[in-house]
Design a protein around this nucleic acid. Sequence first.
DNA 1: AATTAAGTAAACGTTAACGTCAACTAGGGG
DNA 2: CCCCTAGTTGACGTTAACGTTTACTTAATT
Lengths: 127, 127
Amino acid sequence: MKTEQLFSISELAAMFDISSRTIRYYEEVGLLSSESRESLTKQRTYTNHERRRLKLILRGKKLGFSLQEIKEMIDLYESNPEGEDEKNRIISFADQKIDEIEEQILQLQLLKADILAHKKKYLDSKD
Amino acid sequence: MKTEQLFSISELAAMFDISSRTIRYYEEVGLLSSESRESLTKQRTYTNHERRRLKLILRGKKLGFSLQEIKEMIDLYESNPEGEDEKNRIISFADQKIDEIEEQILQLQLLKADILAHKKKYLDSKD
DNA sequence: AATTAAGTAAACGTTAACGTCAACTAGGGG
DNA sequence: CCCCTAGTTGACGTTAACGTTTACTTAATT
């Protein structure tokens, strides 16, 4: 049998350098869960599954996505579509997100080029 | 002589599909100016210079940067450093931003790969 | 068992980035 | 000159994403 390691809320918070409040907030808005909790008033415990999920959330945040967008993307990861329609809906959502991401990458490359150009300008003006 | 075209605030707003209020707010926080205004109570007019600047602001927003970060980056474009120290400070700021951008691009590529993998999973489960 | 540390829910506070509304002004057409 | 449209400055309202505080409970330590 497999004994999954459990984390407390402050352990998880320390791992990612965020506050406990932030984790509770993510649960409040349905981004995270702590299923392995005995009762509603008892303390939360987290498994590796939730740790990975939190990591995904924070990556999304660093990239500038809203919690709502992040929720949609992660739900995509863990959704279990029933009919063909549902699958098609998910696949086209994925395609749409991929397009957005590619556009973002493109814009970031343009921004990088801009900054490089200006940096060069200041470098050339030295001496 | 060169006659620069002038735009009203609502013309500029329409161009970029934003509100006039947004433009005034950008001026309020020092991101934008309307120098070609006669007096403080008269109407604002914008030149191509400010139009380009606004375009940069909106690109930054789409990329998830805060207005404060955007301000710092654009100020970099238009700053006119005096001493060597000032130039070096600007250049190292540029380097730092470039690092951040490269990291963002990397993370976006990972996110894209993730989504592609999950899309494939759903595709394979079809039929 | 008693103290201390850590966690909980609830509620109010905060900041960025605007939206909205009110009261006033400037400028052009007829 | 009058009217109408577009613009102006406050000032207060709004939403997301938490921070902070309070009063209380659960878990750990001695």
